[in-house]
């Protein structure tokens, strides 16, 4: 099971909406994922497999070894997130 975190500044609004969209995206992709929403402060001590956030917050979070960082500017578009997740996790190649 993949550990996935959606991150925003406060952890109460945007990251929560993104969590719901991301859950739907993983479900439709048929990938088991445990998705949690969290604020940027708390995230510092977290070590998920995948982190999904905005481009501006991604700059603050930075790349981490062993963590896949995905950015999005649309928090409710399941189709876009499915494409980004597939690409980041190399799902297409694995299927082929």
């Amino acid at each position: 099971m993949l550990k996935v975190h959606t991150v925003c500044i406060n952890g109460m609004g945007s990251s929560l909406i993104l969590k719901m969209t991301v859950e739907k995206a993983f479900k439709e992709l048929g990938v088991a994922a445990d998705v949690k929403h969290i604020d940027a402060g708390q995230f510092k001590s977290c070590h998920p497999d995948v982190c999904i956030t905005t481009p501006s917050l991604a700059k603050t979070i930075g790349e981490r070894e062993g963590m896949i960082l995905i950015t999005t500017t649309n928090f409710t578009d399941v189709k876009i997130l499915k494409e980004k997740i597939s690409k980041a996790l190399n799902l297409e190649e694995q299927k082929g």
Binding site: N10, G13, S14, D39, T54, L57, N74, F75, T76
Partner: peptide, 17 residues
């Protein structure tokens, strides 16, 4: 944070903690 609360094209979600 670069207006990140504009979470969908043309829609902003104003909120704090």
């Amino acid at each position: 944070n670069e207006a990140y609360m504009v979470i969908v094209p043309h829609i902003v979600l104003l909120h704090s903690a």
